[in-house]
C-alpha cells in the first residue's frame, strides 16, 4: 500500500511539475496571467486521443464509429507493443512530438487576444477560451470521446501489470527532469531576463526595442507545448481519455497554487510547491473515506482537496506571497565572472 502511494505521489509530482514549470515561465517569469493553462493539457489529450488514435484507426483499418474504433485499434496496437517494446517507446515519442507541435500552435494563437487587453482582462479571456474549448471537447464526442471517453494505447503493454505503475512513473519523472533542465537552460539567459522585465514593466521593455506581442507569443507557444506534453503523458498513463478529467480546477488552479506555494520565478521552488501539494492531495484522495468516518465530516470528502486549495491559496497570498523559495536574480556566466572579479578586488 505504502509503495503504491509513493508511486502515485511521484507520478503526479512528475506530471504536475511539467505543467507547473511551464506555467512558471508564463506567469512567474513573463507575468502572463494564464488562467487557461488547462487548455494546453487538454491539447495534449487531443494530440493523443484525437490525432494519434485516429492515425491508429486508419492504420489498422478499423471501421465503425470513432469511440468503438479506438478500443479496437488500441487493443491491436497493444498486442503489437506486448511483443515488441520498441513500438511502445516509438508511440510515446510520437505522442510527445504530436502534443508539443499542437500545443505550440495552439499556444501561439491562444495568446493573440492579449494584443488589445490589459492584464486582468487577459486572464479572464484566457480562462473563457479554455473553458469554451473544454466544453466543446466534453459534449462533442467526435473530438476525444467527450464524457463517454476513448481508449489510448498502452505504451507499456510489454511490462507485467504489477510493475506498470512504477515503470510509467519512471518515464514521467525522467521527462519531468528533462523539462526542468530545458527550462533552466532556457531561462537563465537574456531570454529569462527580458521575460521578467516584461512582467515588471511593459513600457520600459517596449521603449527598449522589444516587441511585447512577439515575446508573449513565443512564451505561450513554448509553455503550451510543454503543457501539452504533460497532457499526453497523463492520457497515456490512464490508457483512456475522458474529457471531464481536464477541468480548470485540476489543470489551471492547482498548478497556480503549486507555483505560488513553491515560489514564482524559481524552478526549484516550484518543485517543492508541487511536491507539497501532491503529497497532501494524494493522501487526501487515498484516505478520504477514512477521514470522513473518523472525523464525521458532514459532506462528500471529494471536496476536501478543493477546500484545501482555497485555504492554502489564501494563506500563501497573505503570508508568503513570494513562496517557500523566493525568486533569485538571473546571473548569466559572464555576470558571474565579472562579479567574482569585483569581489576579489
Amino acid at each position: 500500500m505504502i509503495i503504491e502511494i509513493i508511486s502515485l505521489i511521484l507520478l503526479w509530482f512528475g506530471i504536475y511539475y511539467i505543467v507547473s514549470l511551464s506555467l512558471n515561465m508564463e506567469f512567474g517569469y513573463a507575468g502572463i496571467p494564464n488562467f487557461g493553462k488547462a487548455l494546453s493539457v487538454l491539447v495534449g489529450a487531443i494530440a493523443v486521443g484525437g490525432i494519434l488514435d485516429r492515425l491508429l484507426i486508419l492504420y489498422f483499418g478499423v471501421g465503425g464509429d470513432f469511440i468503438t474504433g479506438t478500443t479496437y485499434a488500441t487493443s491491436m496496437l497493444n498486442d503489437l507493443i506486448a511483443s515488441n517494446p520498441i513500438v511502445g517507446i516509438g508511440i510515446l515519442i510520437l505522442a510527445i512530438i504530436l502534443a508539443s507541435i499542437l500545443g505550440f500552435i495552439v499556444g501561439a494563437i491562444f495568446i493573440l487576444p492579449s494584443a488589445k487587453l490589459k492584464e486582468d482582462y487577459l486572464g479572464v479571456t484566457l480562462l473563457a477560451i479554455s473553458e469554451a474549448v473544454f466544453l466543446i471537447c466534453m459534449y462533442n464526442l467526435n473530438i476525444i470521446g467527450g464524457y463517454y471517453g476513448i481508449s489510448t494505447p498502452d505504451i507499456l503493454a510489454f511490462v507485467p501489470g504489477e510493475y506498470r505503475g512504477w515503470a510509467f512513473t519512471g518515464i514521467v519523472l525522467f521527462i519531468a527532469f528533462l523539462v526542468y533542465l530545458f527550462f533552466e537552460r532556457l531561462l537563465n539567459t537574456p531570454f529569462g531576463r527580458v521575460l521578467r522585465a516584461m512582467r515588471e514593466n511593459e513600457d520600459t521593455v517596449k521603449a527598449f526595442g522589444r516587441d511585447i506581442m512577439m515575446l508573449r507569443i513565443k512564451t505561450m507557444a513554448i509553455g503550451s507545448a510543454i503543457g501539452a506534453i504533460a497532457g499526453a503523458l497523463y492520457s497515456l498513463y490512464t490508457v483512456n481519455i475522458i474529457a471531464n478529467a481536464f477541468t480548470r480546477v485540476e489543470w489551471t488552479f492547482f498548478p497556480f497554487l503549486m507555483v505560488l506555494l513553491g515560489g514564482k520565478g524559481n524552478n526549484k521552488g516550484v518543485a517543492l510547491g508541487v511536491l507539497c501539494y501532491v503529497v497532501v492531495k494524494v493522501l487526501l484522495d487515498v484516505y478520504k473515506y477514512n477521514l470522513k468516518y473518523t472525523l464525521n465530516i458532514p459532506f462528500e470528502p471529494v471536496w476536501l482537496s478543493y477546500m484545501l486549495f482555497g485555504v492554502l491559496m489564501l494563506l500563501i497570498l497573505y503570508y508568503k506571497p513570494s513562496g517557500l523559495i523566493p525568486e533569485k536574480p538571473i546571473i548569466t556566466p559572464p555576470m558571474k565572472k565579472k562579479i567574482m572579479e569585483i569581489s576579489n578586488k
Binding site: 537552460r185 532556457l186 531576463r193 521578467r196 515588471e200 527598449f208 536574480p329 538571473i330
Partner: peptide
C-alpha cells in the same frame, strides 16, 4: 524593473541575441 537588480536593469538596455528562445 523593481524586482530585478540594478545590473539587470541596465542589461535590459541592450538587446542580446540570447533573447530569442532558440539562441538562448
Amino acid at each position: 524593473l523593481k524586482e530585478m537588480t540594478v545590473l539587470e536593469n541596465l542589461l535590459i538596455g541592450e538587446i542580446n541575441p540570447g533573447e530569442r528562445p532558440l539562441n538562448a
